[in-house]
Every structure is written in C-alpha cells, then in structure tokens.
Amino acid sequence: SSKLDRKDSTAEPFYRLVDEVFECHGMFKWLRRSFIMFVEVTFGRSINRQLRETVDWVFSESMIIYYISLFKNSMWPNGKLAESPPPKTDNQKLQTRLEAKEKFLNNMPDAVRTLLGEENGRRGAIKMFEVLQDTRLNKHLFYVSTLTTLVLILIKK
C-alpha cells in the first residue's frame, strides 16, 4: 500500500472527485489501481509525474499567452469590442441547454465509459453538466482558477 501511495499521492484529490461525481462506492481501490495502470501504460510514467507535467504545461508561459490571446480575440474580434447578441427567450435558453447537454453526453470519453461503466459515466456526466449551469459557481470557479494561475506564475518566477 505504501508503494501505491508513493505512485499516486498527488492524484488523491482527483480520485475523491471522481468517486463523488461518478458515485463509485466500493470501487475506490479498483478505480485507483485502474487509473495508475492506465496512466503508466498510456503515458509511460507515474500518475504523479503525469499530473505535475500536465499542470506545468497548462500553466506554462506559452499557454497563458494563448489563453489571453483567445480571450482578447473573443472579446475584441478584429480589434473592436464584440457586440452583445440579442437577448434569448426562455424557450431559446432551454433549447440551447438541452442541445448542449445532449452534445456533452454524446462526447463522453471512451476511457470514462471503460473505467466507470456506461451508466455511472452517464450519471456522473449529467451531474457535472447540471452543476456547471449555476452562474454563481461558474464565477467562483473562474475567480479561483484565475487566482491559482496567477499564484503559480508568481511562484515559478
């Protein structure tokens, strides 16, 4: 068990999140071992190392520049402030939400289906989709991730 802990201690919060979202009660040890093997076979390194390298890449200087450029181009296409779209009716909002939910569910990664099962994967995906519909939570997520990004940038320098 201590060998297992060393291999994936960084991933512990991720396992807990997956366990909560996909309701994998009683499958925690199996899920943990499956993720360890999946990452080692797929990426050829430990899950801790893969997570660290992925986080380093996501918050690298080139990616931060890319995110800022993407934000700038979506807010100011061709150097001009984008116009606000016309307001949607409640029916249009509902239709858009249903279409987005269907696309989200139809594009669930095969790895999720394989590791967690079709039904658990679908239930977890629906739960994630519904949680991400809350405007206050999305703002909080944006602020926390932005603050985290800034802190990581400052720590790297």
Rank of each mutant, 00 (worst) to 15 (best):
K127Q: 05
L137V: 00
P77E: 14
A11D: 11
K93N: 12
F129S: 05
V21Y: 01
Q92W: 04
Y143F: 04
L132Q: 02
D134F: 00
T54C: 14
R122E: 15
A82Q: 15
K101S: 02
A100I: 00
S62I: 01
Q133F: 00
E119N: 04
S145C: 03
F59S: 12
R49E: 12
N138T: 00
R136Q: 02
M75T: 08
L70Y: 12
F28W: 04
Q50Y: 14
Q133I: 00
P87M: 06
L4K: 11
D5E: 09
L17M: 14
T54Y: 15
T149M: 14
G79M: 02
L154A: 07
F59N: 14
Q133Y: 00
L81M: 11
R52S: 13
L4D: 11
Q95L: 09
Y67P: 04
S9P: 00
S145V: 00
I65D: 13
V58Y: 15
G124S: 03
G121Q: 10
I68Y: 10
V41Q: 12
S84I: 03
S46P: 01
L81R: 15
S2Y: 10
V58N: 15
D56Q: 14
T148G: 03
V41H: 11
Y15C: 10
L105R: 04
L98W: 08
F35Q: 04
A11S: 13
L115R: 03
M63L: 11
Q50V: 00
G121T: 07
L154M: 07
F38E: 08
F28M: 08
I68T: 14
N120L: 09
T146N: 05
I153H: 13
L147K: 06
F43G: 01
T114W: 13
S62D: 15
D134Q: 00
K101P: 02
K157C: 02
R33H: 04
P13N: 07
I155S: 12
A100C: 06
L115G: 07
